[in-house]
């Protein structure tokens, strides 16, 4: 494997990692605050992709300007987060925070199953494909290999913007600080008068919107098909657990690790490709039981 191929593998790895990060970071944010591992996160990803692809297909067919594809993605993500994520937190998850972990996970599993069928009832089984956003940005040739600007540059830039934005948002804004406070110590947050329920709702909407945003961005590069959420959720779990639960920067590093591992596998040993995320996760957790960046929690006596 020469330097050129290494460079190509790195490019492919980074662009894949960008998408994985966007989805996983929402999952880890929600877990950090709500302490619920949300299986339905994959459904938000799929809903974001479906909404963008179907609405995009309709408006571009009607002759609207192609640059609208970009604001459309943001809009779809926020709408899915607020209109689907919001009620789920408010009316369902809000009732189960006192239950055991297992039951909480299963509630989100049930939501996932329901949303899978909802998607099919709305959009049917036929794949959607809407690449206007990607086509807008054109291609770039590196080492004789043509890449789309969208995948090679745009997606990684968006991922970095989201990462920095989240970090700054949590540090600098009032809501962000409240979220951080709830993450650090829920009981103390309640005693000083923070409206924890509201923080939960906001966090969940942000998390769901991030997943939907990931789906919206992915819809420009991939076919939107039934079942796409199920694959993404397992991958996000692997990222989140490997990174350490609730670790935002950790999710970025892990996504990169998995992305690079995967693309090098395609060059060196394609048969290994699908195993990479799980092997990385298993290896990391064996050495660092709380994940790469996780901290050991104090045990209650």
């Amino acid at each position: 494997m020469n330097a050129q191929l290494v460079a190509l593998a790195v490019f492919d790895g980074i662009s894949y990692a960008a998408l994985v990060f966007l989805v996983a970071v929402g999952l880890t944010l929600v877990f950090g605050v709500l302490r619920v591992l949300n299986v339905a996160h994959g459904s938000f990803y799929a809903l974001g992709a479906y909404a963008t692809a179907s609405v995009g297909g309709a408006i571009f067919a009607a002759g609207y300007a192609p640059w609208l594809a970009f604001p459309l993605m943001l809009l779809a993500a926020v709408l899915i987060g607020v209109l689907v994520g919001g009620p789920i937190e408010k009316f369902l998850l809000g009732r189960i925070y006192e239950l055991e972990d297992v039951l909480q996970i299963l509630v989100t599993f049930a939501v996932f199953m329901i949303l899978e069928d909802v998607q099919r009832l709305i959009w049917g089984g036929q794949p959607f494909f809407e690449a206007t956003a990607l086509n807008q940005l054109g291609t770039v040739t590196v080492f004789g290999i043509t890449y789309t600007v969208y995948q090679l540059i745009f997606l990684p830039v968006v991922a970095i913007v989201v990462l920095i934005g989240l970090r700054l948002g949590l540090r600098r804004t009032l809501t962000g600080r409240l979220i951080t406070a709830v993450t650090e110590d829920r009981e103390a947050a309640v005693t000083i008068g923070i409206d924890v329920e509201r923080i939960y709702l906001i966090t969940f909407i942000i998390g769901a919107s991030l997943a939907a945003f990931g789906g919206a961005l992915a819809s420009a590069t991939t076919s939107v098909v039934p079942g796409m959420g199920a694959d993404m959720i397992v991958l996000s779990f692997a990222v989140v657990a490997t990174a350490g639960l609730g670790q935002i920067e950790g999710a970025a590093v892990t996504a990169l690790l998995i992305g690079l591992g995967r693309s090098f596998a395609v060059y060196l040993w394609p048969e290994l490709e699908v195993l990479i995320p799980y092997i990385i996760m298993f290896g990391v957790l064996l050495v660092r039981p709380s994940g790469l960046f996780g901290t050991v929690q104090a045990r209650k006596i």
Binding site: L99, F109, A110, F112, M113, I114, E116, D117
Partner: peptide
Amino acid sequence: DIWQMILGVVLLVVILFAP
């Protein structure tokens, strides 16, 4: 068409009302 949805609803009902 909706067998998954039915199972999901059953699961929700059980957890919420008969844990």
